[in-house]
Design a protein around this nucleic acid. Structure first.
Lengths: 249, 249
DNA sequence: CGATGTCTTGAGCTCTGTCAACGGGCGTGG
DNA sequence: CCACGCCCGTTGACAGAGCTCAAGACATCG
């Protein structure tokens, strides 16, 4: 899926597989552990990794679990700007800003790795694969944000929710996990905030998706969602585009 | 404004100034010309630099003029995902995707530089400042997209337009250009597409901003907009947030 | 000068936000 | 153990922001 044009004959192992975005996830951490002075840290849901105002210093990588990053604008508007799964890097905006600009908050118990940016760059001159990993991570986040903007700008509320579920399922699939049963670790309010709509709209959208048999609510709770067929989400999104066919009811 | 934590004692000149985002813009091009096998190309408005489906190969940098990048999703939705001013890099999403994923189109006559990504990386091992420039560019685009998402998710239509104008003015200011008189090189439809609204809403928003004396239409045409006071845009945005005071009329 | 594309403005309608009521899960404390 | 409060989620009724459709004014270009 993702091609790595940076591979050269002399490069170390890792990051050379081409079997998906997650190809280098394990390798990334190996690389860091082996070639750069990285550190690990256990985290629990709700715990904050760094504050928006903190001076930029380290980059963080989700080892296990998942995190969200939340931005607060000067005039107090607050927004979830990203959800980070295993292998995703965090804090990349700090490179240019000098401070993080977002709060990073764990959404589940897990482990997070981190490296000093400066030391990563130094190590990168010896181990180019480290730089490749960094570039891939940044580029991937760019792609993700592009997709988010596309959804925000062109999809109606219901389809945005469907798109969000598809994204979540894809993220799990890329990491070799089941996608027929996902656990959203966010409240409706958080999802709505991320998707630019209210919690009520999220709730209604999910209800409609369930009524249309695109998803099913698990017995375990309303945050556990069964997706028998991820393709059905895509179909739903496309249907909501055509001027003719909306309304699944 | 933007701090560069990568500066080391041994680094070459350039990218070490701290006088704003544009600090390294001239230097970037110097760097490329001196240390990497880059090439230049003249472009005219409407000309396409690369196609979304093209295999990723080179990164592009706006030397003079400006460009937009347009994404087309599989199901045919089309969206302007970014506007690129002097010094902005383009094609960064291709690093992870393997293809560009966007069309890049010139919006004015100008000059665009480009480097093979692979060769840039190679040169970067000899000239670390090149890598710093790349990282800064990527990080900056991440910040920009974050800001876009924030606007899309939390601002009403009028304020999004105001935010867009402010962004444009700031971009000019960072490059040492006048901001009291800007020329939008986009149709209302393009602006609306970029901001997630219709061309009519853009038109109405601009009319309201003009009525509220936040902007003025130039005699030269409706795409030339005078902004006597950039701060007024910010005030307008904040006013549209407070539940009490909206309505400038 | 007509043709085309762009911009503005109005009128009506729809989607989604707002406000409100209600139910369920969970932890705390009596 | 149950009662209570709190947070989360769902659903309904309503209102309003923004979209759709339509008409007309301008500008540009052949």
């Amino acid at each position: 899926m993702y091609l790595d044009f940076t591979q050269g004959p002399g490069q170390g192992p890792g990051l050379n597989r081409q079997s998906g975005a997650a190809a280098g996830i394990g390798d990334q951490l190996d690389l860091l552990a082996t070639h750069a002075p990285s550190s690990r840290r256990l985290i629990h849901a709700g715990e904050r990794l760094y504050h928006a105002v903190d001076r930029f210093d380290r980059l963080y990588i989700v080892g296990t679990g998942m995190c969200k990053t939340v931005e607060v604008s000067e005039d107090g508007r607050e927004q979830v700007v990203a959800v980070h799964f295993k292998g995703d890097w965090m804090g990349l905006g700090g490179i240019a800003a000098g401070y993080y600009g977002c709060d990073a908050i764990a959404m589940a118990t897990g482990e997070v790795w981190s490296v000093r940016y400066k030391e990563l760059i130094d190590a990168g001159s010896r181990t180019p694969a480290l730089l490749s990993a960094l570039h891939l991570a940044m580029s991937r986040e760019l792609l993700r944000k592009r997709a988010s903007m596309m959804a925000l700008c062109t999809l109606p509320a219901d389809a945005r929710v469907a798109d969000f579920l598809r994204y979540w399922a894809d993220a799990l699939a890329e990491r070799g996990l089941r996608t027929d049963q996902i656990t959203l670790r966010m409240t409706r309010a958080e999802i709505g905030n991320y998707l630019g709509m209210t919690l009520e709209s999220v709730s209604r959208a999910l209800s409609r998706l369930a009524r249309g048999d695109v998803i099913r609510f698990s017995e375990k709770g309303r945050r556990d969602i069964e997706i028998p067929e991820v393709g059905a989400l895509t179909k739903f999104i496309q249907r909501s585009m055509t001027p003719a066919g909306a309304a699944v009811h």
